[in-house]
Design a protein around this nucleic acid. Structure first.
Lengths: 233, 233
DNA sequence: CCAAAAGTGTTCCGTGTACACCCATGG
DNA sequence: CCATGGGTGTACACGGAACACTTTTGG
């Protein structure tokens, strides 16, 4: 490396990994996708999904690849969280881990991969402290990032299927923040935001009256993702 | 590495660097500390200050050390920004760079190091596009992070000396946001926030009347850093 | 006495918040 | 006809935004 000057003789390359903090909403609860480690150390413990970055791929590509390898899902909302690099964070060696968090829609898609790699499982976020290494710290940080982000960017939609009802959307936000949100104010804000495109159909699966389906407006979504929008939570 | 399974034969450790995005306010302007590269490639171009992470130090420690080596300053506000890892980001080799941004008080302290390492210089933030590699991207991201943060956390104080006037504080915020802020509303907000401890002295250097000096309340500062506080910018 | 910066209060408007009732329908 | 979830409107309080004049004092 031509950049290395003599004073940096103790500079050596470091193993670099990506760890994925994957959120989904099941029922009314925010869940985290983890797996049971099969290899020592910590075999049997809960761990985030992670792999090493290859030398010929960018870290974002690595994150996408890793998510795909582990879940079979592509084109997923994914965001870099933070880089974790304490010397002793991993007793197996000096590994710098880049955390990425993502939101996935828990619908039929997810069922497939959940069967496929049967060691993965969804856990409730109050079990975060059971994670190995500094994974609890990562997950905690990811949650506060998610909440922070959700207040100003319309990311709640990433957790829903293409077509959804306002009730489902409300449920998602309540799961993210883990506290109740006023139904009427929520509807007002959402409808005013122009993020929703009303569809001429109803979902009758949960009530006799049926509730209108919406899809979300990609255009407004991208505009508001940039500009920011105060949802007032 | 016992973690490496056969499928990861192309996993090799990567060089890991820290790049520092250092902000300071000079006069009424937000400035960035950079240096003129002496080594090829890009000798003569503007570059952020960066060094490699050693194998026996954590990345946060590395960031602190690097800032110290390059500026002589310690105990500086410093925050991890983002990890940059495109394969081709550095033509000199595969280097993953972790960006850290910091705020320094531009007073007598800084004069020292500015003399010491005479290749470093403060540039106006509208010269960011002149930076080499992906350093412009880093600096742009750091600015938006800084602004975002400044809206909710009382970080403006990090850019001021121990004792300062409300006028100076206002100047700092105007420099950060690059637009004028209403004087009277600003004072109201700041005084109400309990972040300021009034001192029984005046600074007469800038006016005949003299303006009161304040120091900032560390306790409230830490509380509000955690809780967040809407400064309304 | 005047120039130059420091300091102070009020009004208005918009928006978030709290809150309670009617609607539609399948069984 | 009634139980169940879906959908709607209003009144109030608070906080942010806009805005102009008085104070001090060194020269």
């Amino acid at each position: 490396m031509k950049y290395l000057s003599p004073q940096y003789e103790d500079v050596k390359p470091l193993l670099t990994a990506v760890d994925c903090i994957i959120f989904g909403v099941q029922g009314t609860e925010l869940k985290l996708l983890v797996f049971k480690r099969e290899i020592d150390p910590f075999a049997g413990c809960l761990s985030l999904l992670g792999r090493f970055v290859k030398v010929d791929e960018g870290i974002n590509e690595a994150a996408g690849r890793i998510l795909f390898e582990l879940t079979g899902l592509e084109n997923i909302y994914m965001e870099q969280l933070h880089c974790f690099g304490r010397v002793d964070r991993d007793p197996g060696g000096r590994v710098v881990a880049i955390g990425y968090w993502s939101l996935i829609r828990v619908d039929q898609n997810h069922m497939e991969f959940n069967v496929r790699s049967h060691e993965t499982m969804w856990i409730s976020i109050d079990r975060i402290s059971e994670l190995v290494l500094d994974h609890s710290e990562m997950a905690e940080l990811a949650i506060s990032n998610l909440r922070e982000k959700a207040r100003f960017k319309p990311i709640g939609f990433e957790l829903l299927p293409e077509e959804f009802t306002l009730g489902q959307l409300l449920t998602v936000y309540q799961a993210i923040f883990d506290h109740p949100i006023d139904d009427r104010n929520f509807r007002k804000r959402m409808l005013k935001s122009e993020l929703l495109i009303p569809l001429p159909k109803k979902d009758k699966s949960t009530s006799k009256k049926g509730s209108f389906l919406y899809k979300f407006n990609q255009e407004t979504y991208h505009r508001l993702s940039k500009e920011g929008y105060n949802f007032g939570f």
